[in-house]
Simulated scan of single mutants.
Amino acid sequence: VTCNITSTLLLIKRLLPVLLNSANPRIILTGSTSGLPQSGRPEVAFGASKFALRGIADALREGYRHQRLGVTCLNLGYLNTEDPLSAPLAVAAQRGEGQLIPVHDVVQVVRMTLSLSPASFVKDITLPAILDERF
């Protein structure tokens, strides 16, 4: 709760004035598939804190729409955190046998989100592993 909610709110409060002065202000919050409705996961505090991030994103979008703040909630499934980005994507994708997402894919999604023009933004992205039966 401290990491996912409190620190997020405090950090955004400090960074928001600087972000709003940029040409294309963007915030990407790291959510989780565990924070989605009916995720089927039993982690109460973790799931609730990730669900709260979606609420933070919604409130920021509405509160700063006229300042053109784009806020994305990236809902990630289980990640392959063992292989570094220096590992070949094909190798990282093999780990977990379809149950883990290579960090390479997360980087690619973030790059895409940040590359959009100021005329649009990505609201939510759900990125589960291909064999995650919940999705």
Results as ranks from 00 to 15, higher is better:
64 Y>T: 03
8 T>F: 02
135 F>E: 00
113 T>S: 13
51 F>H: 14
44 V>I: 15
30 T>A: 02
107 V>N: 07
112 M>D: 01
94 Q>M: 09
47 G>C: 06
50 K>S: 06
39 S>N: 13
1 V>N: 08
97 E>A: 13
37 P>S: 06
19 L>V: 12
65 R>L: 15
51 F>C: 12
87 A>G: 00
124 D>S: 04
116 L>C: 09
52 A>R: 05
15 L>H: 11
107 V>Q: 12
52 A>E: 11
98 G>S: 08
95 R>Y: 04
8 T>E: 00
98 G>F: 13
31 G>M: 08
76 L>M: 13
65 R>Y: 10
46 F>N: 09
64 Y>R: 03
53 L>K: 05
22 S>M: 05
116 L>H: 13
119 A>G: 06
32 S>Q: 12
56 I>Y: 02
11 L>G: 03
51 F>M: 15
63 G>H: 00
65 R>H: 07
88 P>H: 10
29 L>K: 00
74 L>D: 04
13 K>M: 00
121 F>A: 00
16 L>H: 00
1 V>Y: 04
38 Q>K: 11
18 V>F: 09
1 V>C: 08
23 A>H: 12
126 T>W: 02
71 V>F: 01
27 I>G: 05
113 T>C: 14
35 G>E: 13
55 G>P: 06
36 L>V: 06
103 V>G: 03
64 Y>M: 01
108 Q>A: 15
7 S>K: 07
31 G>I: 04
59 A>G: 12
62 E>S: 10
59 A>N: 07
122 V>L: 15
87 A>D: 09
68 R>I: 01
80 N>K: 08
47 G>Q: 09
98 G>Y: 11
80 N>W: 07
33 T>Y: 01
125 I>K: 09
10 L>R: 11
9 L>D: 03
109 V>C: 13
83 D>L: 01
73 C>P: 00
8 T>K: 00
118 P>D: 14
52 A>T: 11
68 R>N: 14
96 G>V: 05
6 T>V: 15
75 N>L: 05
60 L>Y: 01
36 L>T: 06
37 P>K: 07
67 Q>I: 04
67 Q>C: 12
89 L>C: 08
127 L>W: 06
49 S>D: 04
103 V>S: 14
87 A>E: 03
84 P>K: 07
74 L>R: 11
9 L>C: 14
46 F>T: 03
29 L>P: 08
105 D>K: 10
55 G>Y: 10
113 T>K: 05
68 R>V: 02
127 L>N: 08
73 C>L: 07
117 S>T: 14
124 D>M: 09
110 V>H: 05
11 L>W: 02
23 A>L: 15
88 P>F: 01
82 E>I: 03
84 P>E: 02
27 I>D: 02
55 G>D: 05
129 A>I: 11
88 P>S: 08
48 A>M: 14
23 A>C: 11
4 N>S: 13
72 T>W: 01
74 L>W: 08
18 V>A: 07
12 I>W: 06
91 V>F: 10
